[in-house]
């Protein structure tokens, strides 16, 4: 199927499609504010992945807030050290 073979990447970004994609993802979780905020942070941080550093301090703060909220709500969470990745992102910005 052609869609499965069509790659995504920094050189082939349709901003309208990206916006629609995140809105679609967000709407999959209407009852969960933590996950919605995490998806919002993901959308924001995509700018960094696309080498657009504008406003990244604010975006990093949002991501960290989402991370903190998630870990406070689920203290048993032992996943990867996302906060360090975010800090790395902040250091690079």
């Amino acid at each position: 199927m052609e869609t499965l073979q069509r790659k995504v990447g920094p050189d082939d970004i349709d901003t309208a499609e990206v916006a629609a994609a995140f809105e679609w993802s967000r709407n999959l979780m209407p009852q969960d504010a933590v996950q919605r905020s995490t998806i919002d942070a993901s959308k924001a941080l995509l700018r960094s992945h696309l080498s657009d550093k504008r406003g990244c301090s604010d975006l990093t703060a949002k991501a960290q807030a989402a991370e903190t909220e998630f870990k406070q709500k689920y203290p048993a969470h032992i996943g990867r050290s996302e906060l360090r990745l975010v800090q790395h992102f902040a250091d690079q910005a």
């Binding site: 499965l4 995504v8 990447g9 499609e17 993802s25 993901s42 941080l45 996302e82 990745l85 975010v86």
Partner: peptide
């Protein structure tokens, strides 16, 4: 899917929604 570091995860599922 909802991890904030992996924003690229959302484009393919949207295309295949």
């Amino acid at each position: 899917f909802a991890h904030y570091w992996t924003g690229w995860n959302h484009i393919h599922p949207y295309r295949m929604r």
